[in-house]
Nucleic acid binder design. Sequence first.
RNA 1: GGGCGGGUAGCUCAAUGGCAGAGCGUCUCGCUUACAACGAGAAGGUCAGAGGUUCGAUUCCUCUCCCGCCCACCA
Length: 697
Amino acid sequence: MIKIDYLKNNTRYNPFEFEEKIYNYWVPYFKAKKGKKFFIILIAPPNITGSLHMGHTLENIILDIIARYKRLKGFNIVWFPGTDHAGIATQYVVEKELKKEGLNRFILGKEKFLERVWQWVDKYGNVILDQFKKLGLSLDWSRKKFTLDKKYVWWVEEAFIRYYKAGLIYRALRPVNWCPRCFTSLSDLEIEYKERVDKLYYIKYPLKDGGYLTIATTRPETMLGDTGVAVNPKDERYQDLIGKKVILPLINRELIVVSDLRVDPKFGTGILKVTPAHSLIDYEIGLRHDLEIVSVIDEYGKMNENAGSFKGLDYLQAREKIINELEKLNLIEKIEKINHLVPFCSRCDTELQIIPSYEWFLKMDKLAKLAIEAVKKNEVEIIPLRFKKPYFDWLKNIRDWCISRKLWWGQTIPVWFCKNCGEKSYVVDRRKPKKKCKICKKNNWQKTEEVFDTWFSSALWPFAILSTEQEKKYYPADLVSSARDILHLWITRMIFSGKYFMKKSPFKKVFIHPTVLTKEGKRMSKSLGTGIDPLDLIQKYGTDALRFGIIWQLSAHQDLRFDQVPLEQGQKFLNKIWNAYRFYVLTKEKFANQKNKKISQADRKIIKSLENTKNFVEKSIEKFELGLALKRIYKFFWNEVCDFYLESWKGETKNNLQVLDKVMIDSLKLLHPFLPHITQLIYFALGNKKPLFFEKI
RNA sequence: GGGCGGGUAGCUCAAUGGCAGAGCGUCUCGCUUACAACGAGAAGGUCAGAGGUUCGAUUCCUCUCCCGCCCACCA
């Protein structure tokens, strides 16, 4: 790529001239080789909607440093690139595109809409992977994976069918978190709560035997679906209410007062109206006391036929009207302000409704136990250790996972409903069932339109991407790294899925890496305008300098307040390295005829220091302390190799040339995982023809 | 409401039961033939606050105050 003269004649290193060329040179060598002593890294597949952000950047640079270091330690690296179809996220971005054209998916129809999504996938699906190349990641590009690959889709269906046969999957009508804009159910993890000041209405409910009680609610429109009233059994104020009958205003339904521990005596009046259709806590109470489920709000957020004269109104209009009528009846005791948390769709930011819907659920108790056991027995090591606590806490309190979505984009669930009998009759199968419906005795099956929660699919990632016999040996992986926010969403679910289907944890170590914050300690976010685009940084500083700058600031345990200054420092360091090797080459020429075989004091000192540095770096990398490792190498190279050792070669010297060679070549190897491009370039300039990472450290 | 992390030099962060450290920045001096994108050197800190354990605490324990994050079905 370059000759030694280029190094001798240029005092400045220009990354922009070489980084891409060097990357392209490497690509064939990144291929996972046959053989033994593998180190297997599992990539977190980015969404096809994505473009590179600082989180991906940090995460994958960390992994690449480890990959390159392990290569130098003699390992064969297995690290496949891949992407996630990301159901709800992708559907949402395509819908946003349509909106710009004045369209929406309902106007377009399902078929045309899906065509549009596939067009998007073709156009943008690989953008982020191309951006990964700019980071210098040593990924095996001969094996690109996607969560809608044939084999992958097979595995997702397989998982559903096996869970179903084992009795872990059931269908139920339950109140779920529903996004009226995406028009789908959501899992607990896809909700974002926001604080908001609302009104708390104190409403009088007449008692059948005279008098009244007062309940407090922020959602009076749901009262039309009330099928009970509840108080806490320990609440002394209301002992005599238990068992009494209440007349629901406006509807005149008779309700019974039950007692349930879930009622918080401190909230409002301490009396709860129970609406099992539109509240999860009420649903639970309803189950315990055998209360009816009456839904009054539909999928559009409008009042339905059970809402009587309010039918057809938007829930907010209905609220207003209901309050008006209650006021006329003198049933509003007071209205207070309340600051509370309101659920929103984490994708499109629409306020959610809780409505009853038929959905598929995965029973979590057994699976949670598998996941708990895997970490307890150290089959999976979570680093830093402190993340074990939230891991266990989440699993201990877990509820069944709603795995179905009513989206259009995603993998269809392998279930067939009888066209005549609907909900009452279905078959779980990949192909259209041949047998007849038990109820109507006809063969009239239609595949469901429901799709999987995209996380159900990505939970299978560690083994669903392994399609050939050779690849099957790459399970389990040694290492996966992720951001904190997908610990439950992804990591935990991969662990129990792996344990369940493969009988083994899907990876040995999970490194939960720090979050990249702004210099002020704020979250980086596009919408807030606080984000930094890594591609801009690469354009300005080059990849090696970016890698230096971000890892310089990295500590294994603490969030990273991103500052650009260390990137400038990185550029300076690259130039320092460049010139040190220039001097090395010139010095070798100058002393070419020297026959000195003695080891000088300076030689001894630098060898000692080199060994110490290697040991320190090895230990630090094992602990994911890449920032400390880099700082140590930096100090070693700059202060000890350059300021001390190379200086001692000026003028006349008693140093040994072989020691010089060893120090300079070993330094190059030590620097390589962090600064791969420049070290490879210098390696070429010194007359070598192979990838530097095939050397041994 | 529960949990986690952090508060150390102007900035970003280390380390440690026994003189408080690095990089950047600042200041001084040097363009010594690899590099001024450099070299030599200097200044700079009541280690958030209070109490406790100890011969000795920035470090261990308790409490308080700030900052950040996560989890939770308060209607």
